[in-house]
């Protein structure tokens, strides 16, 4: 009310300039205070070599959210192969050897094949995909991936009629991956998608982010990204992709079947014993955001689950 009144009695350009002046002061104060509050002082935080050459075409996602900073994406990683501590992964993975690297694609396919990462990048045009990444732990990021649709690769190997699921396997190398020396888990990391999920145009194999090849801590040299599912579905450092008939038992299903299901679609209505699934913290932001069904990709993927009770198939 008050704003409209003052706009009515004040010439518009004066009103507008006063508003922008006030907004400017607000922004100045905020820019002075917020970095201190959020710990985002660029003068103090050292920029990594990777992030010095970070580049992205898009400034944010289709919902208007800005990209998460390169520093945050490359310093806060859930990658249990290296460490259970998210902030320790980058340093532990710094010397991870990602070349040469091959991905064996087989199982129920007509043309099984082993691809080097260079083969994949040469064969399938890389495109930038800005996706929200919602971790099951209640935090999220907006990431500018580089990659190609998984469907392109699957079409090339031609799944046979018996193929119903895709099973992905990550690298097993305890010598390089200290987290794999703990026996509490059944290594290697295994993930899976139903064939129609794998063929969905949103599903990509990512080989880069922020305009450069993936850094080790983010799953180099090639990883899955299925943005409507919790982050743990997006398996990192893939060495094997098999088309199979039975639903694969994934890494987290094996570790805790009551907490993690095969589908793991982002769903604010299915609670988790530890983390809020109704809301999330976008990394770099202070206030929580509401978590969207299917992480905001419902209009594109909800039809895949028509008729399914998603509380049961969580």
């Amino acid at each position: 009310m008050a704003e409209r009144d003052s706009a009515e009695i004040t010439p518009w350009h004066v009103y507008a300039s006063r508003r922008s002046f006030l907004a400017g002061i607000g922004a100045m104060v905020a820019s002075a205070l917020l970095p201190a509050c959020l710990g985002r002082d660029s003068q103090v935080t050292q920029e990594s070599d990777f992030c010095k050459s970070a580049r992205a075409n898009a400034a944010g996602d289709e919902l208007g959210a800005r990209l998460t900073s390169c520093e945050d994406i490359t310093s806060y990683n859930n990658f249990y192969e290296f460490s259970f501590e998210k902030h320790d992964v980058a340093s532990l993975a710094a010397d991870f050897k990602t070349s040469p690297w091959t991905v064996a694609v087989g199982g129920l396919v007509e043309r099984s094949n082993t691809y080097s990462v260079d083969d994949l990048i040469g064969k399938f045009p890389q495109e930038e995909r800005v996706y929200r990444m919602r971790c099951v732990e209640g935090w999220s990021m907006v990431v500018p991936w580089l990659g190609f649709p998984l469907s392109s690769l699957l079409q090339e190997v031609r799944p046979t009629t018996g193929a119903r699921y895709v099973r992905f396997e990550g690298l097993l190398d305890p010598a390089q991956m200290p987290g794999q020396r703990t026996r509490s888990f059944d290594w290697p990391y295994v993930e899976g998608l139903r064939l129609d999920e794998a063929m969905h145009p949103l599903t990509i194999l990512a080989t880069g982010l922020y305009g450069q090849p993936l850094p080790p801590q983010d799953g180099a040299p090639v990883r899955l990204v299925a943005p409507w599912k919790y982050g743990f579905k997006s398996i990192k450092s893939i060495v094997k992709i098999d088309l199979v008939e039975e639903m694969p038992v994934t890494f987290w299903m094996a570790a805790s079947p009551t907490e993690y299901g095969f589908y793991a679609n982002v769903n604010p209505d299915v609670p988790h014993p530890r983390w809020s699934q109704a809301s999330e913290r976008r990394i770099g932001e202070l206030a929580r955001r509401e978590t969207l069904p299917f992480n905001g990709y419902g209009s594109e993927v909800a039809h895949l689950y028509a008729g399914m009770d998603l509380r049961k198939f969580f």
Binding site: P35, A36, L38, G39, R40, D41, V44, T45, E71, D72, S75, Y76, K86, H87, W139, R281, I283, G284
Partner: peptide, 8 residues
Amino acid sequence: SQGQLTAN
């Protein structure tokens, strides 16, 4: 204040 408490 120094931004040393991880990205979160």
